[in-house]
Computed example of a mutant assay.
Amino acid sequence: MLIGWRPHRRSIRIGPVGRSCCTTAKESIMITPFQIPYDADQAADLRGRLARTRWADAVTDDWTMGTERGFLNQLIDFWRDGYDWAQRRDRLNQLPHVRTTVDGHGIHFLHFRRSAQ
């Protein structure tokens, strides 16, 4: 159970995941489990866009005027060819992600239950 948050001098008490919990007489918050999605087509599109990066001519070979060109090339190469999007998604989805809406704002957070002592 999460307890806390005091916007506009009111307390919000958020109950168990998947249940609605009364916060004020007029308001109720529903917490729902969330899994990070993975779309292979979107990942392929991103790799294609990274491959088509149009590089400006380097003004310097160091960091005095922004990101050093060689470092940036290596970073883009890693995101394009070395980063395993599906594997990272699988690892992140092992965490207890949940979503809710408070005052019209969507909130995504991790919900860890206190271990029994």
Rank of each mutant, 00 (worst) to 15 (best):
V59F: 12
S11G: 09
R89S: 00
R88E: 02
R89D: 03
A43S: 09
C22T: 15
D77M: 02
N73V: 14
L75Q: 13
F34H: 13
I107R: 05
D45F: 05
N93T: 11
H105G: 05
P37V: 02
T53L: 11
L110K: 01
G4V: 09
W79V: 09
D81G: 00
G106W: 04
H111G: 05
W63D: 06
M65D: 11
W5H: 12
D61F: 09
V59D: 02
D39Y: 05
S20M: 07
T64F: 05
H8S: 12
V59K: 13
L95Q: 13
F34P: 04
A58I: 03
W63F: 12
A56W: 06
R91T: 06
Q87P: 01
T53E: 07
F109G: 06
F78M: 01
R52W: 00
G104D: 01
R99N: 03
A44Q: 13
I31T: 15
L72N: 08
F112A: 04
P96Y: 04
F109R: 00
I12W: 15
F78I: 02
K26V: 07
G4C: 07
R99L: 02
A116C: 05
L75A: 14
G82I: 04
V17G: 04
E27T: 12
G66R: 08
P7V: 05
F71P: 02
N93A: 05
M30Q: 07
I76E: 02
G82P: 13
P16H: 00
D45A: 14
D61I: 00
S115H: 09
G18A: 06
L110V: 14
R19C: 12
G106N: 02
S20F: 12
T32Y: 04
T67K: 10
T60F: 05
L46K: 06
Y38P: 04
Q74D: 15
T101E: 09
P37R: 03
N93F: 10
C22A: 14
R19I: 04
C22P: 10
R6E: 08
R47G: 09
S28D: 12
Q74I: 03
I29L: 13
G18D: 02
R10S: 13
G104L: 08
P16V: 08
G104V: 07
D62M: 09
R99E: 09
V59T: 14
Y38F: 15
D90V: 08
R114E: 11
V59Y: 10
G18C: 03
G4W: 04
F78D: 02
I36G: 07
V102Q: 03
R113C: 10
G66K: 04
A116L: 11
I31N: 01
T24W: 08
D61G: 15
R10I: 13
G82H: 12
F112Q: 01
I12M: 11
